[in-house]
Amino acid sequence: MDHRKASLRDEEVIQIYRTMYLARKLDERQWMLNRTGKIPFVISCQGHEAAQVGAAWALQAGSDAVLPYYRDLGVVLTLGVSPRDIMLAAFAKAEDPSSGGRQMPNHFSDPTLNIFTQSSPTGSQIPHAVGFAWAFKVRGEQKVAFVSFGDGTSNQGDFHEGLNFAGVHRLPVLAFVENNTYAISVPYHKQVASKTIAERAQSYGMEGVLVDGSDPFLVYEAVKNARERALEGLGGTLIEARVSRLVPHSSDDDDRTYRDQKELEEEKARDALGKMRTYILDKSLIDDAALEQLEKDVMDIVNDATAYAERAPYADPSTVKRYVYAEAE
């Protein structure tokens, strides 16, 4: 889709590409750090960046409540989480703003940006989003709760309980499912009985929207429209973005036993990041030299974030008993 049809300015498109590229490069760096034994775990955004950045571009950072899931590096970077913060969490350093190294990396949170954590049993964040949406509704605040998750999580009880609740009260919840067709190793047709996840919205009295997640402009438009509907009091939307998972589930997974490698190669060839790069050059939004400079600048940022986080101290073991309970003033 042409970005002008989605009312996006040329400069915004460059920023969207830059954020997608930054997400990819930070992600790739984490795999390298993991394989060299420097960080314990990686869980990737690779292949989801277009959908993530497109979706987050439609949100009001610091105002809307955002409850992302572990692949959403592109979402949180768009909203303003810094690369240093991402790397501090990856290294599990004390300064990690999400949790001071207490949580799994990619359980993103940032109080200043209204980003709230999920946790490892997936989908727990969906009812939390419903709580935010209830609060926004009763207080008359012009905000939405954006919650994202993968296709596997759409089978969880919390998906059903949360969205049903949101539907009953027409709450401003935007449920964003990034469907990469694999729940670790189990393919879509072995976990979801309906043809699409979007059509499940019908039973929650919500709009269901299916969108090509390789096109950030389509995703942006879908989320923007859903947000407007929610703010008008017309209830939530379940948005399904079709994406590709270009790497194994996590750094502890080997996908060669369950993924058709030829199919994977084809998906990599259709990589949304490459498609976007071609788009901005074809539309003459940027010239070759400027694009190379932009990409070089991003690599400098990735290098800085890595070096900064690697040097940062770990949490002091003597603090292990802190924060379990509210502490006396």
Binding site: A65, F116, V130, G131, F132, F136, D158, E161, N164
Partner: peptide, 26 residues
């Protein structure tokens, strides 16, 4: 009805809703 309300029969959602509301100051 905005301060004392029925929920659907969904205990996990009751817990999750409580946490979401607590984040916003309730």
């Amino acid at each position: 009805k905005e301060r004392v309300f029925d929920t659907p029969l969904a205990e996990s959602a009751i817990g999750g809703l409580a946490l979401g509301l607590a984040y916003t100051g309730f």
